[in-house]
């Protein structure tokens, strides 16, 4: 709230700061402060003396890097990272590949029912992740799934989708089903922005639709592909909804399957918010390094190509 008196005294110079103020305050209050607090917690731990009953038996003390060394040597956290790596190796290529394919097909010249198809592919994205996971979870359970009913009637093998390797496919399937539509829209929008003259020139040069797609469309939407890849990496590292929702349905998903599940379990299952804060900081750091590392690498390549 700047009063008229304020405005006069700071004059025009102060105006930008006044405009920035609400955003800065909100940023500090709801972003910087909680992150700072989490960082602070990650260097603390609780110390109990004796039986720990009665008042004053429990104190918060300085822990130094203890929580971090514990997190870095924790089998569950490292195991979770490997789970996510395997999951990401399936989700990211399949989801982006399908998104690109659908976008190119929708962008082709002779497409019927394009608006309907676009909506149909996009629709799963509008379904909340937890609902999607529940829905698929029911379809994966042999005893209640219509798929297994049909497989049994046809005498075909009925794989257990909630165990071992197929579990990765089952989880990836939910993410791909939900995420392809969004990525397709991003790529499709970029395709629509390509000027028509470019296609005209290509056609005059005798390029087939396939050549146009491979040599013109894909290179020209490369920035969108980079963007969707960037989003997908972050989403993969933060996978939580799907495994958490499927967990009660099977013995194969431990409570610490993904790194974020481990953070949740430590904070709310075991009540150790200090360890959870350290793990969360590590995950944020790795996410930052991976995603921005990828962005920089992609930018460097773009610049090299532009220079050529």
């Amino acid at each position: 709230m700047t009063t008229p008196a304020h405005r006069r005294s700071y004059g025009v110079k102060g105006a930008p700061y006044a405009f920035l103020l609400p955003a800065t305050i909100l940023f500090c209050l709801f972003f910087a402060l909680p992150i700072g607090y989490a960082l602070w917690l990650s260097f603390r731990k609780v110390h109990v003396s004796g039986l720990g009953l009665g008042s004053g038996a429990r104190q918060e003390v300085w822990a130094g890097f203890q929580n971090y060394t514990a997190a870095l040597t924790d089998d569950e956290l490292l195991g979770g990272a490997l789970h996510v790596l395997g999951y990401g190796c399936i989700v990211v290529p399949v989801m982006l590949g399908l998104a690109l394919l659908f976008a190119l097909m929708l962008d082709a010249d002779k497409v019927r029912l394009a608006p309907f198809t676009r909506l149909a592919i996009f629709l799963p994205y509008a379904i909340p992740g937890v609902v999607a996971a529940l829905l698929w979870g029911f379809l994966y359970l042999p005893d209640v799934s219509p798929f297994y009913f049909v497989l049994a009637k046809l005498g075909l093998p009925q794989p257990d989708l909630l165990d071992g390797g197929p579990l990765y496919l089952a989880l990836s399937n939910i993410a791909v089903w939900g995420g392809t539509g969004f990525n397709m829209i991003v790529i499709y929008t970029a395709l629509q922005a390509i000027p028509a003259e470019v296609y005209e020139a290509a056609e005059l040069d005798g390029a087939t639709p396939l050549q146009i797609a491979l040599r013109i469309k894909i290179p020209m939407v490369a920035p969108s592909l980079v963007l969707t890849f960037f989003f997908s990496i972050i989403a993969t590292l933060q996978v939580y909804n799907e495994p958490t929702t499927l967990k009660p349905l099977t013995n194969s998903l431990p409570t610490t399957w993904s790194p974020l599940m481990k953070v949740y379990q430590d904070a709310f299952g075991k009540g150790d918010i200090y360890a959870a804060a350290a793990e969360a900081t590590l995950i944020a750091f790795v996410t930052l390094v991976l995603s921005f590392g990828f962005l920089r690498a992609a930018n460097r390549r773009n610049k090299q190509e532009a220079a050529r």
Partner: peptide
């Protein structure tokens, strides 16, 4: 059996 309780499959069983 070794499957968890409180699942749709358990209800059905």
């Amino acid at each position: 059996d070794n499957q968890p309780m409180y699942t749709p499959a358990w209800n059905k069983a």
